[in-house]
Write a protein that binds this DNA or RNA. Structure first.
Lengths: 192, 192
DNA sequence: TCTAAATTATAACGATTGGTCTACATAATA
DNA sequence: TATTATGTAGACCAATCGTTATAATTTAGA
């Protein structure tokens, strides 16, 4: 009952999330979401009466949660800030080396294509970025950085990862992200 | 003659370039390009018989050239790598503070939304990134970095700027880019 | 078992999309 | 001026888009 109810709706969100990361909001049509999720078209509007935008808002939440979860896990595995963030970025890089699944750009793609035309989606994306950056800030503070510095670095790291994912997608390789990870010892160097 | 010939065609490319940076390839329709450029629809297919993709390829070249020109100019104005790149990034940040014009994401947006579905566009974007990175590499070498280090840093800087533009668009402010510029002294610190 | 609610199937809709085509207009050249 | 080359206007097309609506089917609960 409850399991089946959550199934189709969640399947749509999950599939939409993946497609939006790879092709963007405008480049992904509802028919493709339906086909790839296996969900019925009648269900789409039943579950999401406000249509495509509503699906996108849910997809953005899912992207945010997924990255939060992965980042949390990765950042908890190491004892220093440099190692932790390098590990996290290298995990992302590894995803781009798998030829089977095309990896995408979480949040950043849908954010940049809709920022100027859809205020709801822009706000949802901004919220997601803020949460990611809060996690990074908290982690950096735990590693001994001042609140101010942690805040700045979380923005820089977020930008680097988003930009790195763009380069990875464009070059079809995780290499740019690994290059970025390699610069972290300097970027995160604590000043005396 | 030649002036008028270049006029409409270039106007289409310029307008398309701007719209693709703000809304992406799929989020921009040909009718909007025509309306905003003032060019005639008959001319669109006259000048670009291969259609939308052909316009996009030209738009990508223009984006590349515009950023190359700006970066070249900015980077030539300062005596140290840190100052030069900070200046360049701060110039970009300032563009996002102008409320009149919505600023976009050159190359990165069209790259990320088409990387998995359009090989020609992906390759054109990859080419553009390579040229930007080559300029950064050359400049860093001039400032005394080893070839190896210069190459790595050019990738990291490119990623930071692209990612920073995404954050700027999403937050409707140049502030994330200024925060990024502030991290450059450490990132570009020369190791002894 | 029956009833109500939830979900699905499917056709249709209006709008927009990128593209084609033809006649006409304008500019350039001899 | 006449001819050629270049460019424009605007109608049309098929396909796709996101959405609506209704009937049918399935599920859940009493």
């Amino acid at each position: 009952m409850k399991q089946k109810k959550e199934g189709k709706r969640d399947l749509i969100i999950k599939t939409a999330s993946q497609l939006f990361q790879c092709q963007g909001y405008h480049g992904t049509g509802l028919n493709q979401i339906i086909e790839e999720s296996g969900a019925p078209k009648g269900s789409l509007y039943y579950h999401f009466p406000k249509g495509k935008e509503e699906i996108a808002l849910e997809a953005i939440l899912l992207m945010k949660e997924q990255v939060l979860e992965e980042a949390q896990g990765d950042l908890n595995k190491k004892d220093s800030a440099v190692e932790a963030f390098q590990f996290h970025i290298e995990q992302i890089a590894a995803e781009f080396d798998k030829k089977m699944n095309m990896e995408g750009l979480p949040i950043g793609l849908i954010a940049s294509e809709t920022a100027s035309t859809n205020e709801k989606l822009r706000c949802a994306c901004q919220s997601a970025f803020q949460e990611w950056q809060s996690l990074y800030t908290d982690k950096l503070k735990q590693f001994g950085y001042t609140k101010e510095k942690a805040k700045e670095l979380s923005i820089a790291i977020n930008a680097m990862i988003e930009g790195g994912c763009i380069l990875a997608m464009t070059s079809e390789s995780g290499e740019p992200l690994r290059t970025i990870a390699k610069q972290l010892p300097l970027l995160l160097k604590k000043e005396e």
